[in-house]
Design a protein around this nucleic acid. Sequence first.
RNA 1: GCUGGGGUGGCGGAAUUGGUAGACGCGCGGGACUUAAAAUCCCGUGGUAGCAAUACCGUGCGGGUUCGAUUCCCGCCCUCAGCACCA
Length: 796
Amino acid sequence: MEKYDVNLIEAKWQDKWEQDKLYSTPDLNEIDQKNKLYVLPQLPYPSGSGLHVGHAEVYTSCDIYARYKRMEGKKVLQVIGWDSFGLPAENYAIKNNVHPKQTIEKAVENFTYQIKRMGISVDWDRSVGSHEPGFYKWTQWFFLLMYKRNLAYRKEQKVNWCESCKTVLANEQVTDGACERCGTNAEQKLMEQWYLRITEYADRLFEDLDKLDWPAETIKRQKDWIGKSVGAEIEFSIDGSKEVLRVFTTRPDTIFGATFMVIAPEHEIIEQLKEKIQNIDEIRKYASVAAQKTDLERQMNKDKSGVRLNGVEAINPVNGHTIPIFVADYVLSGYGTGAIMSVPAHDERDFEFARKFGLEIIPVISGGSENEAHTGHGILINSDFLDGLEVDQAKNKTIDWLEENERGEAKTTFKLRDWSISRQRFWGAPIPMLYDQNNELQPVDEADLPVLLPDDVDFMPTGRSPLTYSEKFHDGIPEGWRREVDTLDTFMCSSWYYYRYLDPHNSEAFASREALDKFMPVDFYIGGREHVNGHLLYSRFFTKVLYDAGYIDFDEPFTMHRHQGLILGEDNRKMSKRWGNIINPTDVMDRHGADTLRMYEMFMGPLEEDKAWNLDGEKGVFRFVNKIWGLQSKVLADFSSAEQMKEAHRLIKKVGADIEALSFNTSIAKFMEFSNFLSREEKIDLEVWKLYLLVMAPFAPYITEELWHRSGEIGSIHLADWPLYDESLLVESEISIVVQVNGKLRGEVKVAADASPELIKEKARSDENVAKYLAEGEIIKEIYVPGKLVNFVVKS
RNA sequence: GCUGGGGUGGCGGAAUUGGUAGACGCGCGGGACUUAAAAUCCCGUGGUAGCAAUACCGUGCGGGUUCGAUUCCCGCCCUCAGCACCA
């Protein structure tokens, strides 16, 4: 038989599938919420270096699932598009003086070629790129929607600024104080920027996480980021002044233990009380030093520093005690009210501060010690009307007291900040806003969208948006008016792209209501765990806004989400040019073909775990592919085998369950076992062979298609039905039962599947080796696990 | 420091609700084919002892529960990731 010519055969089918548009999405009228399946591989940035093996892992796992479900009869929507706006393309353009559009289009072409070659079954007619006017028109539309709903606004604020990229960064784009993209340390800079009021949705974004089928780690990251804290806001009056100090606390129950207060260096009350503060110069000096510290410095040095405000004291509302006030930089101005009541007995930071400054420590919860803050549970003491209560009861009672006496109320705070979306860059969607002759903001009329990005722009960074200098850009607006020249953060594009796939050519809406109702939400979403927190949060936010505006009737976009693990180089290090350990999917396909690439990546280990590439392992999978090829010579149409059929049905059951569980590595192992089984057989039952091809089809679309046709089939295997297994075929007539004595394996007996427990035990006892151990004492207990084992407990 | 993963042969990794630990693949050893090599095929492969049957040990460490623990509980160690003065 001829050798398996991988590249020839794969190319043949790739062309055929494309001609036949085999993977087109079914028509809307065939689709409903019950039969639809929306499979979404995360939007890639089309980088010049081409597809990465990590991309290949995402696309393969999505594709296996999509193909399997398609064979099961689901109406599948699977599309890949491009996150084609953004900094990397612009930076590349600046460095090499090529227009980003050119770079991107070349990269998209390359990505498309590679993904097609991998045999990923996506509907290419629906593919979109975020840099296309037909796409960013709707990105701009989303901005206007936000603006109209009072969710987009301008304000001057300290922002993260990357000097290297010459642009503003959202908090989510800063990692360890550095720019996520280029690694330059982010600076703080006061600038006027556009923001989205995502904080308005903080509570819903937090609470709705519980209804999602997402990895626990991802849900936790979102929760950490949103940072919900439930507690109370309490008002402390200042002795001899009408000023008040409001604090936020999660522990209102400990209020009787509040022995001092601390305010952030930026707190406005300092200036309001400047006449009374005897050491105002010292305080101002401390504040200005603190202001110069970067976040990183504050993190590095956690030693408590602070200065007491001489001449002013606060009054604890519950007992009227006067307590000192300090300014200290461990209290952050941006969180809560920028001031705290300090309860050193029950808060570690307050404890440390109190120790350092020799302040009073009053325990109000029983069960602590003098040497550390007791932050746990206990019974209230030294607390007047709270004495004897549990912490949770005391919290409620304190809040009731505060509300009755108008000294505070229940309060929830969040760490989440509003999302900064404007960028002083060229390669992004222009913000569709105008400034009129009075410098008042005017939204661009929806009919005038898109606000086109001009081609003839000098995109060298100056710190101001390059669009400032484009004459063409400012054409067509009333005399004396000017356009907003900032562009939108690319996160805006990726927050809604999955809606565009539903209806990519619609010029009236971002997607039709019918398409939205029928396809959404996404059933299966795979993407990386790195850098994804912001994307998921923003997408959820967009979806909730659409829901509130009545465009959709669901409020979470991604029902099910999983991460792929990182694929490491052969040296177990992250793939990088620096280590020279990069594996290029195209090279793998040149060597061994797409089926091997797909199956090897799936075989490496569990989808969600990190795993290292191994060239010998890759070869092993190729060996397996060739083994399948070789088996066809043993297939006979006029031969049937009940034994083979039984194994085939077992295979169908196992693989179906594995795909549902995303346990693709064990499916491949099972395929290998099955081919080992078949290679021991002299002849292969044609029907068994076809079943084998069918279950492998989602994993290895090329070779299965070829062999399917060679076995006499006319249509594509990928349009065939997923085989159903027959449970009755799986029943064994004879089973083997493990025999243990005192929990140790001592033998094995073969019995009829319907043998009685008594018979099995009898047989077990008579096993030669078992009998030896039974003779050592007396059987005091016999355990029989049906179909599995017998264990005799023997005592001598 | 807190939170969440994870520690299983030489390596990647398998093991329904506790029930034969090490499936499958790689590597390695031996053999066949070949002038030779590659490729391919066959046999073996957790450790120790033994010709073997078999025995003992073995899932990071120390305890516990159980007839029986990779799996459950308690206390540690290591490692990866996220968060980090958030009141």
